[in-house]
Amino acid sequence: MPDGTMQPPVLRVEDLTVRFTRRNTDVAAVNGVDFSLQAGETLTILGESGSGKSVSLKALMGLLPAYAGVSGKVWLNGKEILGLPAAALAKLRGGAVSMIFQEPMAALDPVYTIGEQIAETIVQHEGCDNRTAMKRALGLLEQVKIPSAERRLKNFPHEMSGGMRHRAMIALALACKPSVLLADEPTTALDVTVQIQILLLLRQLQAELGMAIVFVTHDVGAAAEISDRIAVMYAGRFVETGTTRQVMREPMHPYTQGLLSSTVHGGMRGRALETIPGSPPNLAELPPGCAFAPRCRYAVDACRQGDIPVVTTETGAMARCVRAEELVEA
C-alpha cells in the first residue's frame, strides 16, 4: 500500500471506453473507466463474464481488433499511450507494461525454449547481447522459483507441467522489469493448490520488484488474497471501488453485496444462498440509468434514468448508486 505522500501514479486511466460496432450491433463493452495506480500497488478488477474487465485490460495493451472503438486517456509513467502508433505500442508491450494470461500457451511460443523466449524479449527491448540476456533469463527463472532453473531454461513449454508453465509465463512478463503488470484471470484455470502458489509468488515478486499490478478476476477469493484495492465492474462500469477491506467487509453497492452473498464460503451449510436474480445484461441493449437496476431489489425510479451519481466516502471508497448512502446507513 502506498503511504500518504502522493507520488505521481504509474498508470492513470481516464474515461476509458470501448465499443464494438459491427454491421447492426453496437456493443458497449466498457463505458468510462477511471483509475490510477501507484507503484507497488495491486488493483483487482472484479467482475463476472461479460462485465468488460478483460476488454479493459486488452484496451490498455492495445490488443483489441481494429473494429473496436477505444477512447479515453491512459498515462503510463506520465506519458499518454492510448493512440500511439503500432510500433511505439509494441515497444511498450513486454517492456514497461506486460501481461500474463489465463492460459500460459497464449504467451509462450511452442517452438522455442523458455530460455530463448525470455532472452529474445530482453534483447529486443534492451539491445544487450545474447549471453547477458540468457544469464538474465536464468535469474528470472530462479526468481519465479522454478526448480533446477538451469535445466528448465532449455525446456520447451510442452515439456513443463501446468504450474511450471505459469511460472515461466510470469518470468517472461517480468523480463524487462515492467512498471505495470496486467494479469488477465491468471489463476482461473489452476487447481487450488497451484493457484495459491501463484498468488503468493505474485505478491512476493511485487514486493521485490515494486511493479503495479492490475489483476482481473471473477474469483472473490483470489481478489481477497492479492489486492490492495478492488474495483467491482458491472456492464462495463466500475460500480464500486475501495480498499480490499472496505469492499469485502462493507460493500455499498447492491451488486457487490449480492456478489459476496452469493459466493459460497465455509459455514453456509443449511442456509439458502441469497442470490442476484436474473442474468447479466445484454451489452448491446443497455438500459438507461443504472445497468443493474433490473436485477436490483432496491431499485427506485431514479435508478432507471439519467446518469447515476457517484458517492464517495471520506475513506475514499466509491459507489455508483442512487441509494448507496441510505443502504449503508440501513
Binding site: G163, V192, Q195, I196, A224, M248
Partner: peptide, 26 residues
C-alpha cells in the same frame, strides 16, 4: 493442504505459506 490452499475471504488473514509446492505428479 487442499483446505489450506483455499483462498480466504478475509483480507486480514491472508495465506502466508504455501501449503504444498509443485504440481500434482503425472
Amino acid at each position: 493442504a487442499l483446505f489450506a490452499s483455499k483462498p480466504t475471504l478475509d483480507p486480514d488473514r491472508r495465506t502466508t505459506e504455501m501449503p504444498l509446492t509443485g504440481d500434482p505428479p503425472n
